[in-house]
Nucleic acid binder design. Structure first.
Lengths: 261, 261
DNA sequence: CGTTCAGTTGACCATGATCAAGAGTGGTGG
DNA sequence: CCACCACTCTTGATCATGGTCAACTGAACG
């Protein structure tokens, strides 16, 4: 079974055996374990390594001076944080372990070697970077336009599909280690309101969430509730339920209407 | 006087005369003019070119099926939209001219030539890409955590400083072509509320905004009102007022406090 | 077992949304 | 050059989504 990074990159480009070997070394060279709720990198630090998430969840966040915290992305196995290494001087945000975390540390030289020798991998890294930017855009839409119910439903959809794309779901279920407080800081809501929203989604049979385990009995219905369209994730081979989902979704509510700007 | 792209990239890396010449060709090869409020590229299109903004403002936006629109970034002279060209198959958002727009179209081959021949430029392009991602993160914070007043003040700060960094400000003033509707779609507020918020900022002497012209009499005060910290823009040589601004700002409110996560 | 943290519930409140109508302003064509 | 039309801005009245505050429950872990 390939590691998560390989799996992730192959989502985009076919890799050669040499590429796969390179990635395997990359991920096994210098691994490290970080305790839950510990910062991996803090805002203002000079980024020392690129971290590849091997196991567990991390979150990227920024805080305002008065303590308000906004989570701006999650990193799950196969994700990188961050390619800033070569370019930007200081981290403009922090990265924190959500769960106990296993990461591979990739240094400057090693990354440079890969970039020089493996064009497939380089392209795939670009792809990961652009997809993560697209996810940022979607999150702006999420907090800017969607209602509380839509935001929370959307988050569940996104994380489920991202986990699925690296093989971390079982049927309709996956691990979901976020507290309601985390979800609040992600969606720009308060924990109290997140609690009420989740109960509503539960009541409507859209999700089952207990003991950090998420089950989505009807993916299509949840996508509808979250106005979720997986296109922005740029995943090549979407699993059946999501593909069919889009078509049915459109059929259900008639032709898509877009503003002409 | 150098074109905006050169000016922008030199913000990050020193360029050679050869680099500058290359950029000059790049921007003069195939230019095009687009009318105000016309889409440059629409969601779902295969990106045909990279556009370099030479004059005017554009906006990146996504719409929900029910018509809600969220602007996710602005592009001003010197900005690129988008490096997706080589990597992603389809546009996941649209780009629309805010004003009458002058752009340079850069095709696949030409970009490839530059990337192969001019390492300085390539690095600078990476930098632009990562900065724009950092701006996305800040926008998530903006709509997720800030109040209406803070959001609007923050937007004015950001755009002013971005314009300043490409030489498009005169003293404390700059062009500001956004309608209150645009600002609403940017900040996740309604146009009515944006109107009231702007009036409040005007009353407090923080901005002068009339006939699409913005003046910021006291940058420091406006930054305070928007909880604005320019670090995320990764601009090397910030103008005096903002540099001093940060120090004074900290002095004014005591030592910065960050959550430990 | 006790302590801590996540989740839950209720009462009340406020920021910002909605709806509606009117005043400027600018662009276009006759 | 003027008249009209469309769009942007403005204002007022009312409403609702989601925030705040506070107290309590339950599970996990040492």
């Amino acid at each position: 079974m390939p590691n998560a990074l390989t799996r992730r990159l192959e989502e985009y480009t076919p890799l050669t055996d040499a590429d796969r070997a390179e990635l395997a070394t990359l991920c096994s060279q210098a691994t490290r374990t970080i305790g839950a709720r510990v910062d991996l990198i803090s805002e203002g630090d000079a980024p020392p390594y690129i971290y590849v998430i091997l196991d567990g969840w991390a979150c990227h966040y920024r805080t305002l001076d008065d303590g308000r915290r906004q989570i701006v992305d999650f990193a799950i196995p196969g994700d990188l944080c961050d390619l800033n290494l070569f370019i930007l001087d200081r981290m403009d945000h922090s990265i924190c372990a959500v769960t106990r975390l296993k990461v591979a540390e990739v240094g400057r030289e090693m990354l440079r070697r890969v970039v020089t020798n493996c064009p497939n991998i380089t392209t795939a890294l670009w792809w990961v970077e652009l997809v993560s930017k697209s996810i940022h855009r979607e999150w702006i839409v999420n907090v800017g336009q969607r209602t509380a119910r839509e935001r929370v439903a959307h988050l569940f959809c996104e994380m489920f599909i991202r986990l699925e794309s690296v093989g971390l779901t079982v049927g309709f279920s996956c691990d979901f280690p976020l507290t309601q407080n985390d979800i609040a800081d992600t969606t720009g809501l308060t924990a109290v309101h997140v609690n009420r929203t989740i109960q509503e989604l539960r009541r409507d049979g859209l999700i089952v969430l207990e003991r950090r385990k998420l089950t989505i009995p009807d993916m299509l219905a949840l996508q509808g509730a979250g106005l979720f369209n997986p296109d922005y994730l740029h995943i090549r081979r979407l699993k059946r339920h999501t593909d069919i989902g889009r078509e049915e979704q459109k059929a259900r509510r008639g032709p898509t209407q877009y503003l002409s700007c």
